[in-house]
């Protein structure tokens, strides 16, 4: 079965603008949502703007910093305050709930997995893409969104890849487990989506394959081919 990359999205915006971004997508504000959740909702809906889409969808998202500001606020309340935090502050510190706030706007979302990262210099795109490849190949889902979302220094950043096992639209590239064919090597870090975008923007005839390999687990490798 052919697994394809159908959308690549980069979000870079001030955190202060997230509310407006979400309001534009939903037509109304998303109440009681942390910045990370607002970023997740706006990015996912930008990749999948049709709310009537019914193809089963999985979301795999990684984050380097996670809900850092919310966690600090919660620790302050619990350790330096009266002990019992405000319910919203506790909820905002729980990244897993972003999926539940996204699902009403994307009913096809069937599952979500959050992967917090343990090293600023590395990401888990290889793992997420290998899982997406496996789950799409076996028919567990029809589409998988892989994302890297972060809020840091007042800026929100989101990188999104939408993978599908069949598509009515021409794909951007094909995703496979790594082959022996010559390919440009990419590092599994936060710049990987930019390298992929560069591959996609190149004129035909230039580099056609981009390989991503886990440095610690060489068998874990995927590649995109134009």
């Amino acid at each position: 079965m052919k697994i394809t990359l159908n959308h690549l999205l980069t979000q870079r915006l001030p955190v202060a603008d997230l509310g407006n971004e979400v309001r534009q997508r939903l037509g109304k504000p998303l109440r009681r949502a942390s910045p990370l959740t607002q970023l997740a909702v706006s990015g996912a809906l930008a990749c999948l703007p049709d709310p009537a889409a019914t193809q089963p969808l999985a979301l795999l998202w990684q984050s380097t910093y996670g809900p850092r500001a919310e966690t600090l606020a919660l620790l302050d309340e619990v350790c330096c305050g009266a002990g019992e935090p405000l319910p919203f502050d506790f909820l905002a510190s729980q990244p897993a709930i972003a999926a539940a706030q996204l699902k009403p706007w994307l009913p096809c979302l069937q599952t979500a997995h959050h992967l917090p990262l343990d090293d600023e210099a590395q990401t888990q795109w290889t793992l997420m893409l290998a899982l997406a490849h496996a789950w799409l190949s076996e028919g567990r889902y029809a589409q998988v969104l892989c994302a890297h979302l972060d809020i840091a220094d007042g800026q929100a950043s989101g990188d999104w890849l939408l993978l599908r096992c069949h598509s009515e639209h021409p794909p951007l590239a094909e995703l496979s487990l790594a082959s022996a064919a010559p390919a440009t090597q990419a590092r599994d870090d936060r710049d990987f989506p930019a390298h992929l975008a560069t591959l996609l923007a190149q004129p035909s005839g230039r580099d056609r394959r981009l390989r991503l390999q886990s440095p610690a687990l060489p068998k874990l490798a995927v590649e995109f081919a134009r």
Binding site: T64, Y65, G66, P67, L75, L117, D118
Partner: peptide, 14 residues
């Protein structure tokens, strides 16, 4: 306090 959280959110894993 003051809480000094490591940069990466899963820094406990290593």
């Amino acid at each position: 306090a003051p809480f000094d959280l490591p940069a990466a959110s899963a820094s406990f894993a290593p």
